[in-house]
Amino acid sequence: MVLSPDEWQAVGLSLKVAAVAVAVSLPPAVLLGWILGRREFRGKVIVETLVTLPLVLPPVVVGYLLLMALGRRGIIGQALEDWLGVRIAFTWWAAALASAVVGFPLLVRSVRLGFAAVDPRLEAIARTLGASRWRTFFGVSIPLAWPAIVSGVVLAFARGWGEFGATIVIAGNIAGQTRTVPLAIYGSLETPGGFASAWPLVILSIVVAWAALLGSEWLARRGGRLSVAVR
């Protein structure tokens, strides 16, 4: 596929943003997925719906809220700038953060299903064999939920790769800094005569999204077979 250097830059940036977004959200997503998949508690529905909210909220709203918090005059943004001299809004970190927030529900849902499918009696048996709570979690629960976790990672990655609405609000569209693949495509459309030049990135996006869905589906099926104790 023929890509211009700028387009290659957008692809590289999209990969980086999506990867960082997933890496940052994975630990809390695993924790939350485990709690939601395993525990019953008061107000669980509230937590569940709050976690899922970014999935159905207009991404622009997410971007707006992030900008409120992390922008120069935002509560967190101002503190970060005053204390550490760090600016997040309109950097690629902001793009990663936007991707993380919108990908988080997909990750949690998948992880949660994975843990819910693990037979709790397998964990109980591990405990009788001398494994601590912690070791049981890492030695039995995580490996059995692994396909679902990876499936969630793949989906969240694909979502992060294509994140647009929240990104453009909080990160802008700065070439080489925050111009990810969808922003580059959008940029092409705005350029006179650029409509046709967008197709390589469009095809690439379709391939990435489709591959992610296929991979995630395959992992989900494999997980279904694995996590249920035989018999």
Binding site: R121, R127, T128, W146, A229, V230
Partner: peptide, 20 residues
Amino acid sequence: LPSQQRGVGLVPQDDLLFPH
């Protein structure tokens, strides 16, 4: 005493082997 400190070996009816 938590399970893991009791020093028991439990063989459940439906064996419950670790599938992974």
